[in-house]
Every structure is written in structure tokens, then in C-alpha cells.
Design a protein around this nucleic acid. Sequence first.
DNA 1: CATTCGTGGAC
DNA 2: TGTCCAAGAAT
Length: 299
Amino acid sequence: MSEPTFTTLVSRWYEENARDLPWRGADVSPWAILVSEVMLQQTPVVRVLPAWEAWLARWPEPATLAADSPAEAIRMWGRLGYPRRAVRLRDCALAIVERHGGRVPDRLDQLLALPGVGTYTARAVAAFAYGQRHPVVDTNVRRVVCRAIAGEPDAGPATRPTDLVATEELLPVEPAAAALASAAFMELGAVLCVARSPRCGACPVESICAWRASGREAPAGPTRRPQRYAGTDRQVRGLLLGVLREATGPVPHQRLDQVWADDIQRSRALSGLVRDGLVEPVGESSFRLIGDGPPVPVR
DNA sequence: CATTCGTGGAC
DNA sequence: TGTCCAAGAAT
């Protein structure tokens, strides 16, 4: 017999050490898994946990969400961030009802065609909800494979086709084992092989990690990112939406004017919210969350 | 390929 | 009110 492979070691570690996350349960529906995946897009697990429970208690299946207003979806989204995801998730529920009879599709191409579902989420649902054999590459998997297999510090910010190929080569042939391995890769990246201070001492593949062998080389050049938040349109949008979320129905613009002093930037942010389908004008001088009441008469 | 899009917690 | 980052998607 040969030595245990990378995949075997990580899978074994996962079976012993996986966090007890509710969407990993045996009786969790594809819809519930899809909701978890969308919420987890750029939002930490600890903040998703309560939101996921509340969301599914209210909308246990796609049709129930599709029948409710986008405004309510935005409110239930709370402060998970990137509220467009809430509207897209409702659009997704509508599409599931209209195209797939209310059942989350199991084909990759059909999943990819759903609003708010991209390369990662489509594959995650196909693998975790339906047990199919697909490489599931998120930021964690990309980092783990890049380090342990390629021996490089880190990959770029975006998932590339080569990342899918490299990960696919690591998957067991048997679909269920492949899905478990994907979850294991993600877990390793989320818990041990983290971006800043990886805990290599506790890692199940420390002895065969290419990055470890090369001395844990640091990432190259200063990959600067416009990560700042204070003073950006994003912050202003968040403030505006916060007011609209707390209100019921239309809000006079005078109240919105109070959240930010700069007229130019505030107007731009508000226009952006309208353009993005999160907010709609009501009458001459009021705004509300999209669909938060009877349709606005058009003239 | 580069940008935009929230939010809050750990350093 | 500094920096980094957390299961991405859409454009």
C-alpha cells in the first residue's frame, strides 16, 4: 500500500473535526442548502447561523419566498451585507417556481442559470445537496490547494478555470466521497489553513504540504485593494437602506437626507439603490424598499 | 481582467 | 473610525 493521499488525510481529519453546522445535517433540503450558500457568500459563518434559521422558518421552500415581497426579503436579510443577495435570492426562488416546479434543480447548467448563483454556488449545491461529483472551489479551497499542492503562497482573488481542474484531480472517483472531500477542503481552509496565521501544527497534511516544505513563503508584492469602507458610496448606501429597512412603506426624502451630508454622494448612492432594484421612488419625494406595498402607479 | 457591492469582528 | 478579511456574483 502507498502512503495516504492528501485527499484521504484531509477527509479523515474532516470526519473527526468538522464543525457542527446546521446546513450540514442529513435532513437539510436542497433549498436550505442553497440559502446557506448564498448567505455565506462573503459573510462569516457566525453571522449566517441565526439568519439562516430565521429565513427558513419563514420561507421553508422556494414558493413561500417567491410569494412574498422583495422588501420583506431585504428586511429578513438584516445586516448580513450585500443586500442585493436578498433580492436575487427571491428572484432565484421565483425562477425555481417558474422553471422547475418549485424544486431546486439538480443539474449544474440549470443551477448556474439561477439569479445569484455563480460557479461556486452552483457546484456547492450540486455536490452538497445532490451528492454529485464536481469540484467546489471557494476562496478556502483555492488557498488550500494553492499552498499544499502547488506550494505557492496564495492564488489571486478570483477563481480560475485552472483552479477547478487542479481541484478536480484531487477528488475521489466515488461521488459521495468527492462531495465529502470538497467539504473537507473548505473546512481545512476555514479553520486551519486560514489566510493570515495558518495553524500548520494542527494540520493533517503538514508533512506533505508543498508550501510548508518551501518555508511558507509570503505572498508576493503588495496586492493593494480598495478595502476601505468609511466614506464610500457603500457606506452611504448602507445608511440609506438602514433607514428604509426600519421604516414601513415610503420614507420622505427629507429623512434620507439626514443620513449623509454630501448631497452629491447621497444622491448617487440613492440612485444606485434604485438602479440595483433595492429601492423604488414613490410619488415625487419619497422612497421605499422595492415592492414594499401596492404597486406604484405609472403615468 | 478589474470593479462594485455591506457589515462587523479580530488585530 | 486603521487594516484585513469572511463559503462570490454580476457587469
